[in-house]
Design a protein around this nucleic acid. Structure first.
Lengths: 184, 184
DNA sequence: ACGTCGAACTTGACGCATCAAGTTCTACTC
DNA sequence: GAGTAGAACTTGATGCGTCAAGTTCGACGT
């Protein structure tokens, strides 16, 4: 459980309604606050739990696994950097660092794309593919244990909706980074 | 949107049912997979977006804000380290580092608790309180913009349920860290 | 009374993420 | 055709988080 990381004042000022503003701010209502706290705990604890387990079982970060996994699902185990970045919700910079490390470990390889522009392809190596395949069952098990198997079907559906909506709201606020997101 | 960070194989092997196992693993069904992908995006993007904004507007991390905020809601602006750690879903180690930094910045102070055992209290300073108060409106606005205002009431309720359930599942798996979590 | 255990921290080393800046291309402009 | 804009990365410095150890205390056994 998380606390009231919401307003620096004590209960009394917040009252019941989701509206009102003491000094121009719409504070959170009781329900909103509770939902936000629960979500904070989820946001903080879930990635940490998954990271810890993947690290133990496969010497991979949650994010590294995502990268390898996305590549493994392409027919040719290959994807362009910027596209891979969009697919993993990561900045190009972050991806570049991670790919650099994974390349050093021999799990994937980079290659300039001949055409116009400065584009780079990333491809899984044999070793890389074997690592993902080996790590997958543990990953899925963890996802089930911590999240999926805890939820009812309608909760799953709602979670899907929420994730999508939030992602949209963030991209909207970011002024749209204008990267490919849809599957061709 | 996020990709299939789930199974290293292509669609065909996963089929429709949430069950079945090619090699002993219960892979994710279409719906489960979709929900998981949406949740991944949420897990990754939301903290990042909040962190970035708080950093820009208040020179505070999302987590630093949480710490200060929790303290600000205590009547005496004081809380014991281990309790504060539980309230913020953080390890004692992480909290210790963060509190150290915030102390250096003059936003809070530590003091040994006289009684038995090795306990430490953390207290907001005047400056610290002013910082939270100043940062709060921006924080709430961001939370609303990215999450709360995007959701219908029933979605809020479900999110609450999900967060609680996940937190419970993780704590269960962790063999119970045995720290206080309930409010007295 | 002495030693051991465990709880409650603290500290240091190391790794990963972020941000700002640099590079390498094409394309467009005047 | 030189210059500028801009997309697609890459790189380096800095800072936060994690993990493993270390410290400091009381309690409990013998």
């Amino acid at each position: 459980m998380l606390p009231g990381n919401v307003s620096p004042v004590t209960e009394e000022e917040v009252a019941g309604k989701p509206t009102t503003a003491v000094a121009g701010t719409r504070w959170l209502s009781q329900d909103e606050r509770a939902a936000w706290l629960a979500n904070s705990a989820l946001m903080i604890s879930l990635p940490a739990a998954l990271d810890a387990r993947m690290q133990r079982e496969s010497q991979l970060t949650f994010f590294e696994y995502m990268v390898l996994s996305v590549l493994s699902e392409e027919p040719d185990h290959t994807m362009q950097m910027s596209r891979l970045a969009a697919r993993t919700s990561a900045s190009l910079s972050r991806l570049s660092h991670v790919v650099g490390r994974l390349e050093k470990r021999g799990l994937l390889a980079r290659a300039r794309i001949p055409g116009p522009g400065r584009r780079t392809n990333t491809t899984l190596t044999e070793a890389g593919y074997e690592v993902v395949v080996a790590a997958a069952p543990g990953h899925v098990a963890a996802v089930r244990e911590f999240l999926i198997d805890e939820l009812e079907p309608h909760e799953l559906a709602t979670l899907n909706r929420i994730g999508t909506a939030v992602e949209a709201a963030i991209n909207r606020a970011a002024g749209s980074t204008s990267v490919e997101t849809s599957v061709p």
